[in-house]
């Protein structure tokens, strides 16, 4: 694509967006900014959940449609951990590690035996997500769970210029998402472990020949990806209502 083409595409998409934004700002600035912030924070939340999927699918070519179940599991366990201990950080840690452990078990017991079989992985993980969602429903029930954020994130920030007030917790999602994104990028591009993961994706046999335990590297990657789903679940429990639905929206 030539530069002219790029520019014309950018103009074609950019000009209407800028024009509509200007119109929205002029018409009802408060509503526009609040909607924009709602969109950005929700996107940030989805990013946290999806980054784990990207890590697993984008790097390892491993289709994990049960990712939503891991996120559900992390959310529930985080919720109960917070109820028991009263600490939000403990909830995050529990959600992350529970999902990571389940993801590790899935990688070691199932995915290791179907490398490169996209469709089979899809089927198996659809089956898993149905079973896990229904088991959680059985164990916990269908009522909606929601918990309040820690005291230092509770309540609104007041005295903002245009919108006057906005939920602190929702706004904090934005930096959390950015931090996780940057940390993942640094981990994959600037550390030795990240280098191993990328090398393993390119040429598994060569990396094994270089003396690296490939299975361990892949299992770790999978655990981190699954853990991020659990982390997203705990964060989401605070924002939105939470009840058992698989990633495919199948009402369990």
């Amino acid at each position: 694509m030539t530069l002219t083409w790029k520019w014309s595409w950018a103009l074609l998409i950019g000009v209407p967006i800028v024009a509509l934004s200007a119109w929205g700002l002029q018409d009802n600035a408060r509503l526009f900014v609040i909607t924009l912030l709602n969109g950005l924070t929700l996107a940030s939340l989805y990013f946290i959940v999806a980054s784990g999927f990207t890590l697993v699918f984008g790097l390892m070519r491993n289709v994990n449609l049960a990712h939503g179940s891991l996120y559900l599991l992390g959310g529930y366990l985080g919720f109960f951990a917070a109820q028991l201990t009263g600490s939000w950080l403990v909830a995050l840690a529990v959600g992350f590690s529970a999902a990571a452990v389940v993801g590790l078990v899935m990688q070691v017991s199932i995915f290791r035996f179907m490398l490169g079989q996209d469709l089979r992985q899809t089927m198996v993980t659809i089956g898993l997500s149905i079973v896990i969602a229904d088991c959680l429903m059985w164990a916990i029930g269908a009522q909606v769970h929601q918990m309040s954020p820690p005291a230092w994130l509770d309540g609104p920030i007041r005295n903002l210029p245009v919108i006057r007030a906005y939920s602190t917790y929702r706004l904090s999602l934005l930096p959390i998402g950015i931090v996780i994104g940057v940390a993942l990028w640094l981990f994959l591009n600037r550390t030795r472990a990240g280098m191993m993961i990328r090398a393993g994706v390119d040429d598994r046999a060569m990396l094994a020949a270089a003396g690296v335990n490939v299975n361990l590297v892949f299992a770790t990657t999978f655990a981190i990806g699954a853990g991020l789903a659990g982390l997203g679940g705990v964060i989401l429990v605070l924002v939105l209502a939470f009840r058992p639905r698989g990633i495919l929206g199948r009402p369990a």
């Binding site: 149905i130 079973v131 229904d134 199948r250 369990a252």
Partner: peptide, 12 residues
Amino acid sequence: ERFNLVIGAVFL
């Protein structure tokens, strides 16, 4: 209520 569990498990 557990139809999904049964069909999911058989499928799996």
